[in-house]
Nucleic acid binder design. Structure first.
Length: 825
RNA sequence: GCCUGGGUGGCGGAAUAGGUAGACGCAAGGGACUUAAAAUCCCUCGCUCCUCGCGAGUGUACGAGUUCGAUUCUCGUCCCAGGCACCA
């Protein structure tokens, strides 16, 4: 008997696939299109287990969909620009390009060794000019449409990475990549106007039924849509101070106003008065603190009086204006109305500075006394001290108050978003150059389309942390102004690498196209992505950027789809010893080692079997061992009996009615049904469990096998079923076994087994008998047995009699073919 | 604090529609084969109690409720994970 040698067969199969271009796909291949995409990796050097898991899940679906007749696009590429390449250059003197390409070469080899069915002819690397030149083209188009602009603003800056970070890229005050604390810095940089799409991106969250609730929730959370009103409070000189509030029902309780230190009025209001100095000092002090520091420290409310007042538009009350450290300039108008009775922050500020408190909303179970309140009441209730609205429920009063404000033209309905525009300038070398030229006379001039691409020069040395080498390379930045032809200077910042990953899924449709950014005919054939698979860590960043970018490209008529990803599966992390695998924790399992020890099939099988895709996967060396044992068991199942059944023609339905054969037939057909349903629901772990049960069943069958022709043919049918069902999970071993059985290798990946309904429903069923809902016995009866007969049988069971004797039967519930429940008193 | 998930054996995890809780795998224990070991195969395996049986009770974080029947539905409590967080 041949023994199972994973390395030999895996490498052999992979070579064959490559020779035959087995996974090459075109639009003309027939069958309904199916675009399956897994998030492409950053070429960091080697594949890690998270990749193996992600791509194993994807490969099951790709192969399964092909077997079901779909025309499957399953591409792979490289998110090849980024910081680690530069760090490697600084630390080891390797050029980022060299480092990146070496890593790509190694990782490509690893992916091929894992046997994933990619159409490698569509491979792209985002650091290739052929790729990023079209990104520059997109940038210029966005510039023309006013979706790109430059402004100076306080930005998040990572000292270690020496570059700016977008809001989304700051995690709890630290850099998303290196964990360094982020500081605030005033810089001029380029922004994509993603906020113009805030509302659509938010509203479409409800139109993505194929996305996990969790991710949509995170995106909504991030976009942060809130409905409210802008209200003008008139100052004593008649000019308005405009604020935004979501609680117009508390307008009668306003006792002061607070401006952000960054608000232009903060310094203007007290100018030339006795308050000027104190306010200036406070503003300067607060502005010097960076955002994360302020958020932390400023739970302690601080502020200063400007000396000016406004009047409450509803009551006419005279209300003082303060500057406070807890008001953000970036949200709303940078100024707030303060209602200490009903807002905890305002309450704290009022206590600190002895400001008055007016309660206008009374809780259902009592009244509020401002003199004794210890915290703001933020709940709902009946309105008080609110003029004509007294006695009304606060939530019901809101529309009326807003109508009144709008009528008097002192307020208007407003929607506000938490989302900020996406800052894309990075003061780094290894990225796509921003195609802009600065001319002393003509100002900011976009590079003319015909001058694209702005090539990132490769003959530079990245030496030390500090300025980007582009800014120090006259060859690069010295350029003539496209308009006046006088000497000018190129932009030396490059684009955030999230820009590349915002449209790579479109490029896969036409990787060879070079006459324009995208070949729309092909793009529209494949788009949208039918199934996207990747880690949750990109729930906001990459997925939100891509949704935005796809909309822009849709408006540039490059793609018809408005949303890029129809269905999304977010897989969990790979955990070992209770922590995410990481070098620092020393709990990393190397895929190369796994392949060497067990082969790719075992590595893949374990990643798929150990837990359902969305959940975290607990790594277990013993569990891997178990998967390897299972594959050997499958191998033996075929290899041991090979001589005997080599020339047998398989059947899936026994000709005679031998009970063992019939039982096996039931098992075969049921397994096919269940595995099909499980894969359709992405329950890959239970799909594998079902196949294991089938294998166990086949072994049991062999034990008592009668060795007649019918049994032999059915046995072979069972083996073939095991192999085919297992194929999408472990393609190498199954192809080898298929071939050993003398079957045409071309057929295994092309058809998914069917089941016969006749063998799904057995003639005899096991019925459970309960008394008062407690299980007492079970009995096997023929399917669809007469209910009266079933009742009588149930009553006569010894174990049941014991529990009903001497009692009155109140009623008997029968669930056909499943259960009898006798209710007694 | 707010929003989303989630709490099931020693462990990873099952249980499409309210109907046998613990599939499948791992670990553990026992046995067969073997001179021995590995490999393989077979059996046992939630907890408690006892008269050790085709036995009784109990059990899906906790407490109520709906129901003939709840891991599943409703309400409340606790815990864990993730996201947001002076966003007005």
């Amino acid at each position: 008997m041949r023994s199972y040698e994973p390395h030999v067969i895996e490498e052999k199969r992979q070579e064959l696939w490559e020779q035959q271009h087995l996974f090459r796909v075109t639009e003309n291949d027939g069958g309904e299109k199916y675009y399956l995409l897994e998030m492409f990796p950053y070429p960091s050097g080697r594949i890690h287990m998270g990749h193996v898991r992600n791509y194993s899940i994807g490969d099951v679906i790709a192969r399964y969909k092909r077997m079901r007749g779909f025309n499957v696009l399953h591409p792979m590429g490289w998110d090849a620009f980024g910081m680690p390449a530069e760090n490697a250059a600084i630390e080891r003197g390797v050029h980022p390009a060299v480092w990146t390409h070496e890593n790509i070469a190694y990782m490509r080899k690893q992916l091929k060794r894992l046997g994933f069915s990619y159409d490698w002819e569509r491979e792209i690397a985002t650091c290739d000019v052929a790729y990023y030149r079209w990104e520059q083209w997109m940038f210029l188009n966005m510039f023309e449409k006013g979706l790109v602009y430059r402004k100076s603003s306080p930005v998040n800056y990572c000292q270690r990475c020496q570059t700016v970070l977008a809001n989304e890229q700051v995690e709890g005050g630290a850099c998303w990549r290196c964990g360094e604390e982020v500081v605030q810095k005033e810089l001029t940089q380029w922004f994509f106007a993603i906020t113009k799409y805030a509302d659509e991106l938010y509203e479409y969250c409800d139109k993505l039924p194929g996305w996990p609730e969790r991710v949509l929730n995170m995106q909504k959370n991030w976009i942060g849509k809130s409905y409210g009103v802008e209200v003008d409070f008139l100052m004593e000189d008649g000019t308005p101070l405009t604020i935004f509030t979501t609680r117009p029902d508390t307008l009668y309780g306003v006792t002061f106003m607070v401006l952000s230190p960054e608000h232009p009025l903060s310094t203007r209001l007290p100018a030339g008065t006795e308050h000027e100095q104190a306010v200036r000092a406070f503003v300067d002090k607060t502005r010097a603190q960076d955002k994360s520091f302020r958020a932390e420290i400023a739970t302690q409310k601080e502020g200063v009086f400007t000396g000016k007042y406004v009047s409450n538009p509803l009551t006419g009350a005279r209300v003082p204006i303060y500057v406070g450290n807890f008001v953000l300039m970036e949200y709303g108008t940078g100024a707030i109305m303060a209602v200490p009775a009903h807002d905890q922050r305002d309450f704290e500020f009022a206590k600190e500075y002895g400001l008055s408190v007016i309660a206008t909303i009374m809780p259902a179970d009592g009244t509020l006394d401002p003199a004794t309140m210890e915290a703001a009441y933020e709940g709902d209730g009946k309105m008080a001290n609110s003029g004509p609205f007294n006695g009304k429920h606060n939530r019901e009063a809101i529309p009326g108050i807003i109508d009144y404000l709008e009528e008097k033209k002192i307020g208007r309905r407003m929607v506000n978003y938490r989302l900020r525009d996406w800052g894309i300038s990075r003061q780094r070398y290894w990225g796509a150059p921003i195609p802009i030229i600065y001319c002393d006379d003509c100002g900011t001039v976009p590079v003319p389309f015909e001058d694209l691409p702005v090539v990132l020069p490769l003959d530079l040395k990245v030496t030390a942390v500090g300025k980007s080498p582009l800014a120090e390379d006259p060859e690069f930045y010295k350029v003539d102004c496209p308009i006046c032809k006088k000497p000018a200077r190129r932009e030396t910042d490059t684009m955030d690498t999230f820009v590349e990953s915002s449209w790579y899924f479109l490029k896969y449709a036409c990787p060879d196209y070079d006459r324009g950014p995208l070949d729309s005919a092909r793009v529209n054939y494949w788009m949208p992505v039918d199934q996207y698979i990747g880690g949750v860590e990109h729930a906001v960043l990459h997925l939100l950027y891509s949704r935005f970018f796809n909309r822009v490209l849709n408006e540039l008529n490059l793609v018809d789809a408005r949303e890029p990803f129809e269905n999304l599966l977010t897989q969990g992390m790979v955990i070992k010893d209770g922590a995410k695998m990481s070098k620092s924790k020393g709990n990393v399992v190397d895929p190369d080692y796994m392949i060497k020890k067990y082969g790719a099939d075992t590595a893949r099988l374990f990643c798929l079997f150990a837990s359902p895709p969305e959940k975290d996967l607990d790594w277990s060396d013993k569990g891997v061992e178990g998967c390897f044992r299972f594959l050997q068991r499958v191998w033996r199942l075929v290899a041991e009996r090979l001589d005997d059944i080599k020339d047998t023609v398989s059947i899936l339905e026994p000709a005679a009615d031998d009970p063992d054969c019939v039982q096996l037939a039931y098992l075969i057909h049921k397994t096919v049904k269940k595995v099909t349903e499980d894969i359709d629901r992405f329950h890959l772990n239970t799909a594998i469990a079902r196949i294991m049960e089938l294998v166990n069943g086949v072994y049991k069958f062999i034990e008592k096998e009668k060795r007649d022709e019918d049994s032999k043919r059915l046995l072979r049918g069972a083996m073939e079923t095991v192999i085919v069902l297992l194929f999408p999970f472990v393609p190498h071993i199954t192809e080898e076994l298929w071939e050993m059985l003398g079957l045409d290798i071309a057929t295994i990946g092309q058809s998914w087994p069917r089941y016969n309904e006749k063998y799904i429903m057995e003639d005899r069923v096991l019925v459970v008998v309960q008394v008062n809902g407690k299980l007492r016995d079970r009995c096997e009866v023929e399917r669809n047995i007469d209910q009266e007969r079933l009742k009588d049988m149930a009553y006569s069971l010894d174990k049941v009699r014991k529990h009903i004797e001497g009692k009155t039967i109140v009623k008997t519930i029968i669930v056909p073919n499943k259960l009898v429940n006798i209710v007694v008193k």
